[in-house]
Write a protein that binds this DNA or RNA. Structure first.
Lengths: 204, 204
DNA sequence: ATAATTTTTGACCATTTAGTCAAAATATAA
DNA sequence: TTATATTTTGACTAAATGGTCAAAAATTAT
């Protein structure tokens, strides 16, 4: 039986999670200090620990929240209409999501780089299921002759790779192009170009 | 005037750099401890500090080494023959490189996630030059009608994104596919599929 | 062999960090 | 208003961490 959370509880927990997401995104679990998070959440460290008993608990919460948001986005994606429409729509959604959840995306990258010690079991279940369903869909398109006979998993990886690249490497992209992710025009152009290349790459 | 380095110096410095690359790749600068590196390099911490005065010095050395290797790989890539040949050859080289230098690649990712505080000036010079040269080459292909009129920078980003994805996310890939980067067949297949999709995506 | 030099390390220090705790401040209920 | 429960924090602790140092061990030169 979970204890009912007061208004303050809900607000402050969220404030902490938001702050923690930003700091963990930059420095990973080991590289992040509770002081950094506390400062970013505008509260004292003991107060932070009043809401989350340990650094690990907080980190796990951040990870789960992030993964759930991501899976939510993926599940929202419905196979509707042609391969062209579906893939185009998926890239679009993933691009928007990566921009709006860039910090979560980076927490995720950090976790993967560390060998995904807190995530392996989650990856192995929900995500695996999602991927195998997608593979079936893509195989269907290949059979019906809608797209080229590529190995589906690599199409999926390619889409993930590119969309995440724009979220995770924004520093590099900014240095090289002078453009920010917040630059609507640049981001739209990126999305358009990538979508065009991927669609041409697989459609028959 | 640099002091001439003894045989022991050269060997041990390299041993430390190799160990440090692995640990920094996993945990980033802040998340890595000198003890971890010392243990991985099979020596005591004071001994490690005898070769590199501070953690930062060691980290900078690792970063520079990595970046130079990467730039070396990029520069090795010559524009020769058709767009198809050149792009195909580039993807191939980048794939091989990403696999053989996966740890360096991840150190790089960590640095970028932290906002590239030690790297910004380097990125802004060598890499920027390289990119602008490549953009010219690609624009040439567009003018001559060899490839579709895409914005060159996004083609470059796409190639980087995908090749690095296989190096950086190997944990995720292993969980989802059961295949390792070391699995020659799997890697070859990945390379073949990605190359095919990208080439089809841009060639006229 | 022995003197000079380089390499290695145990013991140590100052600082940082995750986490505790009792008490103060604040909000809520009576 | 007063009693009760919740929230907040200053002061603290134990462990970890980057770095020092003097002396020991090993290597090199004479």
């Amino acid at each position: 039986m979970e204890k009912q959370k007061s208004r303050t509880q809900v607000i402050n927990r969220q404030k902490i999670i938001d702050a923690a997401t930003r700091v963990f995104a930059k420095y990973g679990f080991n590289g992040t200090t509770l002081d950094q998070i506390a400062i970013m959440a505008s509260m004292s460290k003991p107060n932070l620990l009043y809401y989350f008993k340990t650094k690990r608990t907080l980190y796990r919460t951040v990870l789960e929240d992030t993964l759930n948001q991501w899976l939510g986005c993926l599940k929202e994606w419905q196979v509707e209409g042609s391969a062209r429409q579906t893939i185009s729509n998926y890239i679009d959604k993933k691009f928007e999501f990566s921009r709006d959840h860039a910090f979560g995306s980076r927490v995720f990258v950090n976790e993967i780089l560390e060998g995904a010690p807190n995530l392996k079991y989650l990856l192995g279940e929900d995500l695996k299921l999602f991927v195998s369903q997608n593979i079936l869909t893509i195989k269907g398109w290949i059979k019906s002759g809608e797209i080229e006979p590529i190995e589906p998993i690599h199409l999926i990886f390619m889409i993930w790779a590119v969309t995440q690249h724009y979220a995770d490497f924004s520093t590099q992209i900014e240095t090289l192009t002078g453009k920010t992710l917040a630059d609507k025009d640049f981001y739209q152009e990126a999305k358009k170009n990538i979508t065009q290349m991927i669609l041409r790459g697989v459609l028959k």
